[in-house]
Design a protein around this nucleic acid. Sequence first.
DNA 1: CTGAAAGCGCTTACAG
DNA 2: CTGAAAGCGCTTACAG
Lengths: 329, 329
Amino acid sequence: MGARRVTAVDVARRAGVAVSTVSYILNDAPGQTFTPATKDRVHAAVRELGYVPSAAARALRQGRSHNVLMLLPDMGIGEALAHVVDRLSDAMDQHGYSVVFRRSRAGRSATALVAELAPAAVVALARLTPDEVAGLESAGVPLVQDVGGRDGITDREVLQADIGRAQAQHLLDLGHRRLVYGAPDDERLEPLARNRVAGVLATTRQAGLPDPDVVPVPLDADAAADVVRAWLDASEPPTAVCAYNDLVALAVLAGAARHGVACPADLAVVGVDDVVAARLSVPPLTTVDFHPDELTAELTEVLLDRLLARPAEPRTSWTGVELVRRGST
Amino acid sequence: MGARRVTAVDVARRAGVAVSTVSYILNDAPGQTFTPATKDRVHAAVRELGYVPSAAARALRQGRSHNVLMLLPDMGIGEALAHVVDRLSDAMDQHGYSVVFRRSRAGRSATALVAELAPAAVVALARLTPDEVAGLESAGVPLVQDVGGRDGITDREVLQADIGRAQAQHLLDLGHRRLVYGAPDDERLEPLARNRVAGVLATTRQAGLPDPDVVPVPLDADAAADVVRAWLDASEPPTAVCAYNDLVALAVLAGAARHGVACPADLAVVGVDDVVAARLSVPPLTTVDFHPDELTAELTEVLLDRLLARPAEPRTSWTGVELVRRGST
DNA sequence: CTGAAAGCGCTTACAG
DNA sequence: CTGAAAGCGCTTACAG
């Protein structure tokens, strides 16, 4: 109830030192040295009292909290993104930081959020406006852009295009010449899809092929069956589909099954993400794994470089996009 | 760079009032009244200056931050849990709260986290020790237990058992008498699985049937095929499986397909979660949807009741566990 | 090597 | 209805 909070003053009193000493020792402040005996007394007092520094007081004093603000795009969180958020949280947690994520939405600019939360850094998986970027800059808050860009991490658009390229190249290598793109049926995904499509087009054009049609595929077996039917009824039916992601690919598979279309014999399908369900479909799904875990590891390192003011080494955890061939191609 | 932060003092100066007036007006403090003209001047100044109150200063002063600490079980975040986290964050965000989540792990007790973050409330989706619960109590921090318990929300164990019951009952209604339980191959999921199994057993026992075997099913088509093979080779092969979740169910489907076992004719399968992929498998998966969205809505309301000191009305968004019958049974 | 003191930006009794 | 002031719990020059 009224159990007063244990403060640094309490620790100091118990250890028989000044509060400043407690603070210096707990943060092992550079340029300050203390006898082992003093340190021990302080640490012992901390333990006995169960002292935990107040994040609020620290943040207020330093003008910077230990929060990392993660700005997410305004779209549903898929399996891959959930893992990124999850792993980054865990990793930063190890270093004493809390990850606070926010979906970017009209009304609360990144600038306002930064003023409110005074984050130690911002990780933007969503696109920021130039004003927002400038605002962060002038506030001196380290910004790591959308798993990408000028940070030694792979640029987002490049990454997405790589994915599309890998899909199309695989299909072309297999001898397919008539491709179609299975786009998401959710317009909020359009920005991402656009870049993936760009990779596909770059590849097919280079091979001298006409641009594949881009058609939305609903995540529903019946609706997907209609889409597949329309493809089959075309004058020159596609023989392979690049799907926006594994879920779309699974929908295509389901739609094809409805019409007895053999996969991959009559229609080959490649997804993206290597979701768990991709290994479990019939046939198992060929997919592009862009190694979100590695990307997250890299993101974490870059973030810590900035946060701990470590020399920014080139980070190269990411091994690139990988085509995982299974039964659907 | 050194652009000094805009504070309440700046706003007060600009509006020609005292800082206390600014604070009172911005928080519309009860029992304080101001002329519309004064309010307007303050709001105008806020807007012109782009003033955003410092979360750290507020938290320090009030001894309580606007963070909601969400404690997650030490397991991978599945599709359902990701949605819960996601939606809760969004909802609380609307009310000015940030959700900070932490995986429960040895070394950092909830008590220490609370001392550090001074959260406005704690949502525990992981089990807390009695000591931790007592600590929260004495610190006066509202605790909402694991989407469950004494809060007008469904108790977690009851919910899990309901899921198992719904699966088993459905299969029994269909005439199946030899069931088997497809357990997760990840021991961190065991606590959850245990309660689901309990629901299944309660149902089969009531029907006078022997307890179904509980066998782990790896999320891999080959390995799952081996499991299915073992079932078929048994002296009295099961005719239906209750899977821990949709992914396990999908693995069973994949395993069955490997051996040409017809589903549902030779082996019926029920999952849990109604994951997107469940609608897209061949055959589409029968599953139990426990409506995590409704549960989250309820969780949010209960949380806000506590946070805003609203009278705790009975919350009844949750419509219970629902069996969604599709092609796999 | 240690200690007293200022100040981060708020909110909230309290006096006018 | 408005204003001056204390204090939340830290960190960090600064003086000893």
